[in-house]
Design a protein around this nucleic acid. Structure first.
Lengths: 240, 240
DNA sequence: CCAAAAGTGTTTGAGTTACACCCATGG
DNA sequence: CCATGGGTGTAACTCAAACACTTTTGG
């Protein structure tokens, strides 16, 4: 860490602020959606941005800061969903006020419980990423790029991990799980081959023994998330 | 970025220093090795640590800071090798002096040219990661964990990208490339199947037309890196 | 009974593994 | 000419894609 620099006993601290931002993804209304908040102050006042905030204290762990932000913004408990570091963004000028280094996290959340009234009661919305990423949509700071990276992380993690289940409610059907894949990847999957594939990965799903009948048709078995975390062999999406 | 916080026009900047550290990996003497520097000052004086330094100015891009450190520490040109962000480490207490957030990068380098005399002429060494990661070996700060993460990144990137070639000299044989895989993964591969697999990925290798005869036996064809970056289907290592 | 969704079985082809075999060179 | 590594051919196997077919419900 301090090997190259001049290294006096004291260094000059450049005027750098450290932020933790969150890309909270969820599947809702047959679309992959991301949580955004409306900015109340300049710069980018009134525009949508990722939730996040500055490092609260000098003794707060990064992962803890992310979990705290998540709790504050959405009321969600970080222990109940998947939260992982995405990347750090620090291009000068990304915040017009001063140099800000943003350590970004992605969260994969099941349907958000309430219409997400944050603790701060600031205006939070869910927006389909498809819409966010359109060229015409304008998002504060460099957050559009961060969202694109978060979505790509989600898409590739579905391939080789069992994280798709993190988007499902605690109990779900095979079709619920398949729809997560279809929505995140934007691609239809064969229900029959999908079923066989998932059942073949042991530890992915635990059958509850229950069945639900939500449409006409044969009732579907209910499952819970199993202990497996990796998918091997991977579940590949088609390459263009 | 500043959505959750109190948000006065001015925020308090916590006393946080931002560092950029490098995990420079190379294959040398039939081992995956990492570049370490001996610390000249406390804390951890005399111990080995990753090369790196503090953000030089308030207007320096992170990727640029990493490339600059690389140049300063090793004389290597970042344009000539692969450099990518790994992860950001910020657990409080990881530097005993004050809060330091380290944005870490991994570099994949071909054989380092000279015995790595850095610009600063500080003592730099290559050490096999196998040795670094042994429980008994002590490394400054939390750098052992960072090194473990860097190695895991390298191992998994060989599976689904063409990055193995980044460890090879500009011109190399199929066996050179195979040995990169074998050394990084610590696993023997069948030379015949490996050859066919790599040849089948188009854009991975460009034949130079030349041949070299370095041992008794049929001379091997020489190749250069091709434009392909992804390996599809992936090259899987065996799972334990 | 019919439509619709859940789930099983079967065929085919792509891709990997394992290994026999041929090729081209140095000593 | 023979040991050695480079490279090709091929059969057995694994797994995914495609799809016919059975099961079980709501209306």
């Amino acid at each position: 860490m301090p090997p190259t620099m001049p290294e006096p006993a004291e260094w000059t601290i450049p005027e750098v602020a450290v932020a933790v931002d969150l890309a909270i993804l969820t599947v809702h209304d047959s679309a992959l959606q991301i949580m955004l908040v409306k900015r109340g102050i300049p710069p980018y006042e009134g525009m949508l941005a990722l939730p996040g905030g500055f490092l609260a204290s000098t003794s707060e762990d990064l992962d803890h800061a992310a979990a705290r932000e998540l709790q504050e913004e959405t009321g969600l408990d970080a222990r109940a969903l998947h939260l992982e570091q995405l990347r750090t963004y620090g291009t000068p000028g990304r915040d017009p006020r001063r140099r800000v280094i943003a350590i970004c996290y992605v969260a994969f959340s099941p349907q958000l419980p309430v219409p997400v009234a944050g603790g701060d009661a600031r205006e939070a919305v869910l927006m389909p990423v498809e819409k966010v990423l359109r060229p015409r949509t304008r998002i504060a700071f460099d957050h559009k790029k961060i969202i694109a990276d978060a979505v790509e992380r989600a898409r590739s993690k579905l391939e080789y991990t069992t994280l798709a289940a993190a988007f499902c409610a605690p109990e779900f059907t095979m079709t619920d799980l398949r729809e997560v894949y279809e929505i995140v990847w934007g691609e239809q999957l064969d229900p029959r081959n999908f079923h066989r594939k998932i059942i073949g990965v042991d530890g992915f799903l635990i059958p509850t023994g229950e069945r639900v009948s939500r449409q006409p048709g044969r009732p579907a078995a209910l499952y819970r998330r199993g202990p497996a975390t990796v998918l091997h062999p991977a579940m590949l999406r088609s390459r263009p």
